[in-house]
């Protein structure tokens, strides 16, 4: 009994100089013996302590705890309870499955820039703002490539993720552009003041030339 501890201790201390075969013998013994495994752990700890190599925080059983944490971790990263309460639960796919939050957020940032650029350059969406909707056949305005894209199976969700990004981008854009719509009604008084201001500043601008 004490002999096998002796061997292990020698191995941990690097004093087991006899031969490689004997060290592998000890290692095999450790693999098959729970008691030896415990000793293995504490010997290493003692050795680290003696050599003053111990970290500031010692996490005993860290591997066990990680395993435990993984076991008990919910598979879904999105808040669980709220969605469960919804009547549409059965048909809903959690967001996490569709790709991480961060990925979406990052692509929104990129898309936001593109979106504003487009907005600045052209009145691309203008005909659609002005077009009177025809009940029933609103789809007449769909892109030409529509039928082709539909034929491709959509199961991987890439297409939908792209569409969600488009919605998120548009939502951000709408929030930014919203203010002017809201203020049209009340800004008349302000407007007059500003126009005076602007007229004055224009004069200042022009005089040096």
């Amino acid at each position: 009994m004490s002999q096998k501890f002796e061997n292990l201790s020698a191995l941990v201390d690097g004093e087991d100089s006899t031969s490689t075969s004997s060290s592998s013998h000890v290692l095999d013994a450790v693999k098959n013996d729970a008691e030896l495994q415990l000793k293995w752990k504490s010997y290493h700890l003692i050795r680290d302590g003696l050599r003053q190599e111990l970290p500031a925080n010692i996490n005993f059983d860290i591997a066990d705890r990680v395993a435990q944490a993984l076991e008990s971790e919910p598979a879904i990263l999105a808040p669980k309870k709220t969605w469960r309460d919804l009547p549409l639960v059965g048909t809903v796919i959690p967001f996490a499955k569709q790709g991480g939050q961060m990925a979406i957020a990052a692509s929104v940032a990129v898309a936001m820039i593109i979106g504003v650029q487009q907005f600045n350059q052209t009145d691309a969406n203008q005909p659609f703002n002005a077009a009177p909707p025809i009940p029933g056949i609103q789809g007449g305005l769909s892109p030409v490539s529509f039928d082709q894209t539909r034929a491709i199976p959509n199961s991987d969700g890439v297409e939908q993720r792209r569409r969600i990004n488009a919605y998120l981008t548009d939502h951000k854009q709408q929030l930014r552009f919203k203010t002017m719509q809201l203020n049209n009604d009340e800004s008349t008084i302000l407007d007059l003041n500003i126009k005076n201001e602007e007229a004055q500043s224009d004069i200042v601008e022009n005089t040096p030339q």
């Binding site: 999105a78 808040p79 969605w83 919804l86 549409l88 048909t91 809903v92 796919i93 959690p94 967001f95 996490a96 569709q98 939050q101 979406i104 957020a105 929104v108 894209t149 539909r150 959509n154 969700g157 297409e159 939908q160 569409r163 969600i164 998120l168």
Partner: peptide, 10 residues
């Protein structure tokens, strides 16, 4: 295009 029902937070 067909789509899945989704709910989540961004």
């Amino acid at each position: 295009k067909p789509q899945d029902n989704l709910v989540g937070t961004v």
